[in-house]
Each structure stands twice: as C-alpha cells, then as structure tokens.
Design a protein around this nucleic acid. Structure first.
Lengths: 151, 151
DNA sequence: GCATCACCGGTTATATTATAGCCTAATGCG
DNA sequence: CGCATTAGGCTATAATATAACCGGTGATGC
C-alpha cells in the first residue's frame, strides 16, 4: 500500500474517531481495527474475509466478534452493507446521514457509491404517494462500469 | 383461503403459463407448484419456508429443488427476490420487464411493490452520469406503512 | 424408429452467512 | 468504591445457498 493511501486511511480513521466522540459512541480498539480493515480493502469485503484478516492478529476472533463490530459501524454510519453481495464498504462521507446509491459492476466487481439527491427525492416521493413513511432506502444498481464498457 | 382469492391465483398461474409458453420456457409441474406457493403466501416467503411447504406433497424435496425453481421463476420475471429479507414475492405484473421498487414496513412486515417510472428514470440517469450502464436496479425502501403509521 | 442432446430434478454433501446465549472483563458514573 | 451498562470471548447452532454427480424424460433430427 502506498504511503499516500495509508495517509488517507489514517485521516478517515481520525474522522471516524471524532465523529464517534461527538456522538458519545465508543470506537473501541476492535471496532477501529475492523473499520481499518474495511478501509484498506479495495472493494467490498465479506464478514468472513474480515474475520480471517482479524484473526491474523487477534487470536480467538469468532463470527460474533466481527458481526458485532459491523453492527456498530453501520449504526454509526461509517460503513454500508451491500445486500446484494453480503459485503461491506466504507461510507464515502463519514458519519453523516446520507442517501446512498451503489453502482455494482458485473464485470469487474467494482462498487461505486453515489449520492444523488434527485433520485433519492424521487424515491421518497414515490413512497409517500403510497402513504408510506420511508426511513432508509437500499439502492443497488447492477450493470457495467465505464471502464468495462469501453475496454 | 377465499374462493375469490383462489380464482385470482388461478388466473395468475394461467397468465404465467402463457407467458412461459410464448417464451418457449418450460413451466414444469414443480415450477408451477412453487409459483403457486408464492402466490398463496400473504407476504414474502423464504426459500426454506417454501421448501417446507413443498415437502408436504413432494417427498425428497431438498434445497436445490427449491432454489432451482426460484432461479427459473426469477429469470422469467414471475417473482422477485427481496435482498434485504432473503425472501421472495410474486411480481405484480407477470412476465414483463419492469422497474420495481419495494416498500417494506418495519412494523408489520408488509411489502408493497410499486413501479415508479420517475424514480426509476432518476436512478438510471444518476448511474449514467457516472458512465455506468445499468442493467437492473434493486430498490428496497424500509419504513412504516400507512396502516402502521396511523393506527 | 431411434440416436442424440439438452434440460430437469433427485440426492448427497458442503459452503457461506448470521445469530443465540452465556459468561467475564472493561468502562463510566454516582 | 460499588454498581450498572456495555464490550467482547467463546461455544454452539441456525439460516441461507451452492457444488457435483447422475438418471430420467422429452424434443429434435435423421
């Protein structure tokens, strides 16, 4: 990993610590570690992939170890779960409420998060027209990314 | 189940048969049966719930039995999979390509399918602005349905 | 007719994803 | 401190999904 990349990750971890501190949430060593693993991964990672990496330095880590950390990180809006892939990615924008949409490339597996307010609003209105009160929208679009499309 | 409800289901099964016939797809007895079970269910059903029901009349049914039937029904656009729930529901409109969105009530578990073109288009455009070529959008909105909200 | 081929589904085994439940340790707080 | 609350270790198990192999069956071409 490049020094530059490491610096970015360190900054993201720092921002996460601050966000948690502001909320009174405890970003413990374990949770910090798991978030670090997700930030380091290039692309979505599954819970068991994370568990394997975690085990390298934390003997005795077991599924509940990782799932509890993931639950925490999701609750703090530091990561997202991709339901289609049963995998996890960092939020592009740490710690805020934000309407996220994901673009999943079927060729290369790359996942891009976008944050399109027009689409989010359209969905919200569509739901409200049914008398529905939306809390959270899962939007995962499968297709072909620009790079795979124009090879 | 009411006679009326049974009649609706029979009509849906008939429409499915026709749609498959048009496509040259084989809606075998097993697949017809599984589609029937999904139509009869009031709400999303999981693969293993379907398997249990199937077993009542089909000794030896096993997970692959049901998953293969589900794959077929999805490929024919007769059912949808809800990724959030790992569960299956019938399509509201049999056999067509259609952009579907789902409203999932956290209180009562009811799932409503809507088909909002404005939202679908907004998503499509958002993806295309990234140079992405969308094939399929998974949209599942969690929240509170009208009935649960105004009790 | 009958050879061939593709597809269907039975069967066994196993992979993958996720949670329950119980207990001890660490932390925050009056 | 003493107590409550939360975090996480640990074991077990639940829930979801697929691999791989095989025999049967129906369509197709000759």
């Amino acid at each position: 990993m490049s020094a530059e990349r490491r610096a970015v990750i360190a900054a993201q971890l720092g921002a996460a610590s601050e966000a948690c501190a502001r909320e009174g949430a405890r970003l413990t060593e374990l949770r910090h570690r798991v978030l670090g693993l997700i930030l380091e991964a290039d692309g979505p990672v599954t819970a068991y992939q994370l568990l394997d990496r975690l085990k390298e330095t934390r003997r005795g880590a077991a599924p509940p170890t990782i799932y509890r950390a993931l639950d925490f990180l999701i609750s703090q809006r530091l990561i997202h779960k991709l339901e289609r892939l049963n995998a996890f990615v960092p939020c592009i924008e740490t710690g805020h409420e934000h309407a996220a949409q994901f673009l999943i490339c079927r060729q290369c597996g790359t996942v891009t998060e976008i944050d399109d307010h027009a689409a989010a609003n359209a969905l919200e209105h569509a739901a409200e027209r049914e008398g529905f009160h939306p809390r959270r929208a899962i939007v995962e679009i499968e297709g072909t990314c620009a790079l795979c499309f124009h090879p």
